[in-house]
């Protein structure tokens, strides 16, 4: 995943595509999702596509991390991995 995100051309994705911000951050919609959409086309009536955003999604600045993002710091290796970002840490990572 890290490899792919490095290859992202952000300027192009933001200004020259119609992808939603969600799609840009999480990657483009995968093939499985698209197939699902096609299946629905057979029905005479199609359900109105549920919007990506629910009415209560907040315009909030503060982000909350999922708990696995927080518990990873219990791991000593993980804990030591960011020592080089402090002035007290050595320069070689």
């Amino acid at each position: 995943l890290a490899q792919r995100s490095k290859a992202k051309d952000w300027t192009r994705l933001i200004y020259s595509t119609a992808l939603s911000p969600h799609q840009i951050v999480r990657g483009e919609p995968n093939a499985a999702d698209r197939e699902k959409d096609e299946e629905n086309d057979d029905d005479f009536f199609t359900l109105k596509k549920a919007t990506d955003v629910d009415a209560d999604s907040m315009d909030a600045t503060k982000e909350t991390y999922p708990s696995d993002q927080l518990t990873k710091w219990d791991n000593e290796e993980m804990f030591d991995s960011i020592r080089n970002l402090f002035i007290t840490g050595r320069n070689d990572p």
């Binding site: 933001i14 951050v25 982000e63």
Partner: peptide, 21 residues
């Protein structure tokens, strides 16, 4: 990396001021 909010914000700045990053 930009957040989803930031991406939409950059697009909206372009609408309002014509500035792109």
């Amino acid at each position: 990396e930009p957040t989803e909010r930031t991406i939409q914000f950059l697009r909206d700045v372009k609408d309002a001021f014509g500035t792109s990053f």
